Amino acid sequence: MKKQILFIHGGGEGGYKADTKLADSLRKELGDAYEVYNPEIHFNDTLPDFGWLKQIGKEISLTGEKIILAGHSFGASMLLKYLSENRVQKKIDGLFLAAPPYWSGDEDWKQGIKLHKNFADSIPKDIPIFLYHCKDDEEVPFTHLKFYTQNLPQATVRKITGGGHQFNNDLSFMAKDMKSL
């Protein structure tokens, strides 16, 4: 049976299309023993979380009993929010987060996507967590990684020298970590 990976793309105009290259990179690097799902998550401007949490929950429910979760940028931050606010009945074999933004500030539009203060306490402790961030990320400042390393000290952290926000469309380092599980 193939190992299932649910990959949640980043947000913004063209986020799904741009991140399909990242999901394709995972498929190529992981080979036939893995199945990478890359569903398109749609923005709903009328909801505080833009509708992402419900859609992520639905996608998780459609997978088998064991799953690897991966996300890029907005998708990575929303995976963390989902896991910190919902109980998942599946066995999560790993959580892989590439360039997750840390949402802060008092703007109304951010309130539904911010993590609660003690979010890390709600993440199951038995899930291996991997964090990736490029030092030359032009979208999500590299300094956001510090927030996550402080709050998720159990995480394996990979600081990537170059590749920008899209990691040069190459997630071979993430695939290597997934294979190590």
Rank of each mutant, 00 (worst) to 15 (best):
D177M: 11
L79D: 01
E138G: 13
L53E: 11
F119E: 00
N38P: 09
I60Y: 01
E35Y: 08
E35I: 12
L115Q: 09
A120E: 11
G11E: 06
I41C: 05
I67R: 00
S122G: 00
F130G: 06
Y34I: 03
T161Q: 15
P141F: 09
G163D: 07
E65V: 07
F74I: 03
D170R: 06
G105L: 06
G105R: 05
G162R: 15
P100C: 01
E13C: 14
E139N: 11
F96L: 02
E13L: 14
L22H: 11
M1D: 10
F7K: 11
W109E: 08
F167N: 07
V157C: 11
K146F: 08
Y148T: 06
D126K: 11
Q166E: 04
A99D: 12
D177G: 09
D121C: 05
L83S: 02
Y16M: 06
G15D: 03
L97N: 08
P101Q: 03
D45R: 03
S25A: 10
F43T: 15
I41R: 08
A23W: 04
L152G: 01
D170F: 09
F130T: 12
Y148N: 08
E40S: 11
R158G: 08
H165G: 09
M1T: 11
A99G: 11
D177C: 10
H165W: 07
H165C: 06
A175L: 05
D121F: 10
H133R: 13
K54S: 13
N151I: 07
Y16H: 14
I56V: 08
H42Q: 13
H116C: 05
G75A: 03
F43L: 14
I56K: 00
G163W: 06
D170L: 05
G51A: 04
L47M: 13
W103H: 14
G75L: 04
L80C: 03
H144Y: 07
Q166T: 13
D24H: 14
P153T: 10
L6N: 15
F173I: 15
D106E: 15
T63H: 07
A76I: 01
